[in-house]
Amino acid sequence: MTAALETNGLGKKYGRRWALHDCTLTIPTGKVVGLVGPNGAGKTTLLHLAVGLLTPTSGTITVLGGRAGDGPSKLARVGFVAQATPTYAGLSIAKHLKMGAWLNPTWDGDLAKRRIEQLGLDPSQKVGSLSGGQRAQVALTLAIAKRPELLLLDEPVAALDPLARREFLQGLMEVVAEHGVTVVLSSHLVADLERVCDFLVVLEASHVQLAGEVETLLASHHRLSGPRRDPRSLPASQHVIEESHTDKQSTLLVHSDEPILDPGWTVMPVTLDDLVLAYMGQAHSEREPQRGLRLIP
């Protein structure tokens, strides 16, 4: 299977600050990828590099087997909706669709018309008079009507209310079911993406902290709690991601490909939310080591 997106040591520097650093990542085709991280983690930078709006300072990025943003034929295969779903407030929906048809060689006019109908929108309406959720749906319609193989969405649901958010994701998943497009959508909240994504990338402090198939990630991480003990006494196959201790009890989040059989632990599954927070926490503790917190051997 070819990768939809592949980066190798990818980095982007603004002035003296790395917005994205040493990013090595492979995203297989056909996935719905959640790109999660706090504001300023490098999500938008990564997406802009993938579209070709930015050029890398270091490393390489390959999109659909070629250079990112490499000419009109490559651009036609990639759909992108920027943050805040930009549209032209003074133009009607019909004019947006007309513009889409002019600008895109692979435009699917029927698909666009059908989607606007399904959404119950009047094509003569000016986009400026629509609600945030409707505007987001129009922007999504424009991006999918060009029939991209890779669809990149930057914070598509951040500004939407819960109902509009659900409707947006329903529409997006219908497109995935129908056309099998690879989707990368970013959010600072994993809860927004939990239902839809089957591949997760956690960005924090300009670095990739975690990347992989959601199912594999969930199956290989466990929350352990039991009598207090030193995490260093764990088997080598168990890697501690997060730990907290009281004077009597230890709670750990560990990565292990093998089942935890030690009867001393109560083993609980982890949620995607747990995972994201644990890996983000790890990024923080690496940057500012907390002194004074010593582990009792």
Binding site: V32, Q170, M173, E174, V176, A177, E178, R195, V196, D198
Partner: peptide
């Protein structure tokens, strides 16, 4: 169908 399910639940069709 997968499409009917995702249209209702907003989950990934692969699921």
């Amino acid at each position: 169908t997968a499409q009917q399910v995702v249209a209702k639940l907003a989950i990934n069709p692969n699921t």
